[in-house]
Design a protein around this nucleic acid. Structure first.
Lengths: 219, 219, 219, 219
DNA sequence: TATGAATGAGGATTCATTCAT
DNA sequence: TATGAATGAATCCTCATTCAT
């Protein structure tokens, strides 16, 4: 390449190029998942991919930022493709909440490395990286907003109790992401069981009902 | 001596040495909180601390791992000192669960830099790196076990419903830690309100009661 | 074939090949003039020329040295074609000296990019690099010798004073080249005015006459 | 170092540091003079200086820009120190012009590498390097202005004819600099003879007198 | 004849660490 | 106990060139 392609996008890519990019992205995912983001240098990724030179990565990706961007984008896209249909097939309210949690964990079960890699990336450059991190923040925010939307919907139809949707949304995401982290160090974890427990947990947390005879809004 | 102290530990440290170590740890905390873990090099820490040489840090700490270990340990210790009395003063069961969550967030409110720094450290290099990660895993595990203990206790006295204590414990921790992350990028966050919402959330999640007429253990 | 044409030279080139070479040389000239020699990589030249691959440049030119050689040669040839007739049309002596200077600057006025590019090239890598510099030295020397010849001719017919022709020649060239440099950073420069001033300057410098009553040959 | 010194400057530098900086600057000068600016990489400079690591250069200089800045500054300072007293000791007008030219070439005779190096640097990054080149442009401009001042002074006292001082100044500088370039490839050049010729040349060029009976101000 | 892919050396810079004082 | 100097590996990235098609 070297004479950098215009960013016009995917359409102009050769078959070979697309394949190589995919291969490199895949190698990056696995490398990040294995050794962590900070240690996932071009050298290690190239080695993992069986490439002869780190230059090849630079040849296909304008910068490391573009590469990790693609890593994130690819996993997010795959995740959305897998989960959104399931979630939206469920009835709004409690069922949809369960579907959200369970489909997230089901996706994890089949894409452990991807999940780990994205978790690594998102937490590795949280703030402090000028423009780059800012690119992922909205992505995370959008995910939270989507979830919060489902929750508000459940409140609107009277299946979910009155809580702050953003707090609940962030908590649910944190709970799911934590599973991802744990999964990284503990393959063999029974994700199905976790999914059930977690769904129950948030079903209780969000549904109408006690505890306490009245509300417990004091303190 | 230089770089390797006798293994006897704390006892053998002179007053000056302890003071310097504390100063460096403090500078490391602030630096990490400000610029992120990845950018918290010895150079930047030394600059922040007003030290004339990065060599001084190496002189007092055998490796960077030891330094960040101390950072984590110091914050964890401070946290425990602050929170454990409050938690154990509360009545077992639901009250203690609330106390756990609220005291955690109260500690955060007063120690934002520390919390941010630890959050940075725990999500940076660790995981997947052979020996180093192992040092934090048990620490994290111990914290979870402590929390799970409180939960089992609540189940035993019949105030909390039947759930998997480890799942609930990890979820609660993840929820709290997520607040820490968010706090890093969003000072001005109303921690008191979050604490209340979160306590309500897990009160509903863990207490006896619906949803569903019976249990919902299907699927 | 690929990268090494028969040494027969120009004759063996097809029409297409000549056209491509010319196109590439032209793109190289413009690129060098725009971004400077150091930044004029194959990638940037290819992009400027609308070529799809840097490989095409390597296909037509055995090395970067050959390409920049052609850049210089082309501009020098164009310059000679433009200037020599004008110079030789002028009467030997003072008039021819003026013609030399003025035609040089007139050429510059109409070929700013070319002039800039050559100035860039001549002052970049060349000097001190074993074989490559040697290619431009004789070219420069030949130009100086041509000019020195005009000067000697003027001395022979008694219009120009006794000075060292090589010193005068190099000084004149340096003065002209300096205008080229300045032009690069300062388009809008009034070349006609410069030409007049410079012609007057060297007319005084080289013509018979004072200063001093006699010669001033003392140290 | 690494914890970068404040730019407070020279005062805060250790003896050793100053010595190393000087050594590196000297090595840079010689390396640039030998292989040209573009090829004067840290690796080559370090090798030339007998350093074990390119890191040492980065340790003492914040960037390559700072290093070459020091190279230029050092030579300019030495040059000024050498030449200005001589120039200003000469009587204004023709004598001072001769002094300017002759002292410049006398300095060159004793500082060939320095002269070559600076010439390399100044022409290597002419424009196109955003802020860096801009730092040298004023330096060059200041030198030209100083010279133009001497020329105007000579015109004011009636020793020098009416010409455009900036054109004359740039021409004189170009003539001198050209000697520097030539010197690079041709040690053994008789600088004293050049100095005499050049002084005569510009004495004729600038002094009151013919050629032509009247002025020749027509196009 | 042209293309896109691949190569590997080389670019400056940052880093944790060592060591003589 | 502290300092500043030095080290060399590692970072991402750019380059001209080669080669199969």
């Amino acid at each position: 390449m070297q004479a950098k392609h215009g960013p016009g996008g995917t359409a102009s890519r050769t078959f070979t190029e697309s394949a190589r990019r995919a291969q490199i992205v895949q190698a990056a995912i696995e490398t990040i998942a294995e050794v962590g983001y900070a240690r996932a240098s071009y050298a290690r990724i190239a080695e993992h991919a069986g490439l002869s030179s780190t230059g090849l990565i630079s040849y296909h990706f304008a910068s490391k930022g573009e590469l990790v961007g693609e890593v994130v984008a690819e996993v997010v896209a795959a995740g959305q493709a897998f989960m959104v249909p399931v979630i939206e097939a469920a009835a709004p309210g409690r069922a949809r909440l369960r579907a959200y949690i369970e489909s997230n964990l089901a996706f994890m079960a089949g894409h452990r490395a991807q999940i780990t890699a994205v978790a690594e990336v998102l937490n590795a450059l949280p703030r402090h990286s000028e423009g780059q991190a800012a690119a992922y923040a909205p992505l995370h925010a959008r995910g939270l907003e989507q979830l919060a939307g489902y929750l508000r919907e459940g409140q609107a139809i009277g299946q979910l109790r009155r809580f702050a949707p953003d707090v609940m949304a962030q908590t649910i995401r944190a709970a799911i992401d934590a599973v991802g982290y744990r999964l990284a160090g503990e393959p063999g974890l029974d994700l199905a069981a976790w999914a059930r427990e977690l769904a129950d947990l948030f079903d209780h947390a969000a549904s109408i009902g006690p505890p306490g005879s009245g509300r417990r809004e004091t303190a």
